[in-house]
Design a protein around this nucleic acid. Structure first.
Lengths: 143, 143
DNA sequence: GTAGACCTTGACCCCGGCGTCAAGGCCAGA
DNA sequence: TCTGGCCTTGACGCCGGGGTCAAGGTCTAC
């Protein structure tokens, strides 16, 4: 099969396939006229790449899975190198989620404080007494 | 104060300040010789920008806060536009955390299954009977 | 007068993952 | 034969947030 068909069957573009080839991630055989030629095995490799990318893996991280498949294993994650990538990804995801959660709390707190400050300002405007100074500076989350 | 001093006091670089000016985010007055000139108010604006950036806000998202401060409000988040940015950021963070958590679960599941498959393969290798076919294909997380 | 520390603008580089031309080859159907 | 649809390589663009030259101006201290 040629590049256009493979791209369509995998739901991607020819540009993407040429890019993967330039990385050595999905090399292609050539026919006599210079056209790239792929088979069903290449489709499987490509599907493995795309699936991992949908999970947020970088292209380089998919390489162990692809090589695992190419070396004849039944699945891309049958090899220790792939499992290591899984584990590193898990740690990375956990750290990222924790960081975002901390920021989410910080922003939520800021929003509540700022809304309260505005409410106090409006209350002070309707009942003009000694308006309490609103305090809503952001504080850095640390180094 | 000149650009070098402001950069140092804010813990950033002159390149960054020039970049912010090119965005219209932190304009500078000029002295007779063409040098940029800043005052304490500019330092406050810059601190507001850097603090928000530490929270993961994009530069464009800091603009309402800076303009709020510049228009004389006591804090950058004293204005409705700033609060809207807070709310949008919260929604964005929630969505991002949810997405990452789903992926984290998916990857965790994959890891467990792949480890189990390997264990079964090894067991089959030591006790060579009818080896059960390992099934550990990744499935896409959906569109 | 001259060294050195500051400042100026302009321009290119980086990261990943492609999108999007441009100019030209190859092949099938009318 | 010609049109249209595939294919080829090469090259530039984009996104954000600056880093890092380069070539030159300005000021201060000695």
């Amino acid at each position: 099969m040629r590049i256009g068909e493979l791209a369509e069957r995998a739901g991607t573009t020819t540009r993407t396939l040429r890019y993967y080839e330039s990385l050595g991630l999905l090399p292609a055989r050539r026919t006599g006229n210079g056209y790239r030629s792929y088979d069903e095995e290449d489709l499987r490799l490509l599907q493995q790449i795309r699936t991992l990318r949908d999970f947020g893996f970088e292209l380089e991280e998919t390489r162990p899975f692809v090589e695992c498949l190419r070396s004849g294993h039944p699945a891309g994650d049958s090899c220790p190198a792939s499992l290591d990538v899984y584990r590193r990804k898990l740690a990375e995801l956990d750290e990222c989620i924790a960081r975002l959660s901390a920021i989410r709390e910080g922003v939520g707190t800021q929003l509540v404080q700022a809304e309260r400050a505005r409410a106090e300002l409006e209350a002070a405007a309707t009942a003009p007494e000694g308006a309490p100074e609103p305090r809503c500076e952001l504080t850095p989350p640390g180094p």
